[in-house]
């Protein structure tokens, strides 16, 4: 966490474009406050994620990097696709949609993985994640237009969850 604090101070200085001692102190102080406030959440998450990862089979660093990169490319591509789809829907003269909420069973267990998955779902075509059950096993997702509930569920699981699972179990 001290390392994180130094990283925050450096980011602060980089964004201010001033590498003076005063700025280092200010950045360090702000970072300290942020970490102090979020300590409980941070700790739980780091411990849980590392536990989950050690059980999982070992993936090499280059492989992980490749997967992270491909996830980012996939994410940007789906954001653009989502926007065009929503834009088309908004412009179309007759609104013909069947919105509804589906429960998606989750296989991802780490908090980071769940956060990433739900953010990804919100940013992609026709879906907004609404809430997660208390035991972190079911995600409730609002769909803009459901033609076939099972197909919609399968698409989320196969397209998004598999990719996120690769990185964060």
């Amino acid at each position: 966490m001290l390392v994180l604090n130094f990283v925050f101070a450096l980011i602060w200085m980089a964004l201010k474009e001033e590498f003076s001692f005063i700025d280092f102190i200010v950045g360090f102080g702000l970072g300290f406050a942020i970490i102090a406030l979020s300590q409980k959440v941070l700790q739980d998450q780091i411990i849980r994620t590392s536990q989950l990862r050690s059980e999982d089979s070992y993936t090499s660093y280059p492989e992980r990097t490749m997967k992270t990169f491909s996830l980012m490319v996939f994410m940007f591509w789906s954001i653009i696709k989502a926007n065009i789809e929503v834009a088309r829907l908004i412009i179309s003269p007759r609104l013909n949609i069947q919105p509804g909420i589906l429960a998606i069973p989750l296989d991802v267990q780490s908090e980071i993985g769940i956060t990433l998955l739900s953010n990804l779902i919100t940013l992609t075509p026709g879906t907004v994640s609404l809430d997660i059950s208390h035991d972190r096993k079911t995600l409730y997702v609002h769909f803009m237009d459901i033609a076939d509930p099972d197909a919609a569920r399968r698409e989320i699981k196969e397209n998004f969850e598999r990719r996120v699972m690769d990185l964060f179990p």
Partner: peptide, 12 residues
């Protein structure tokens, strides 16, 4: 809005 699609969050 009224819809034919299910609401699986209802009553949860």
């Amino acid at each position: 809005m009224p819809s034919n699609a299910p609401d699986e969050l209802a009553g949860r």
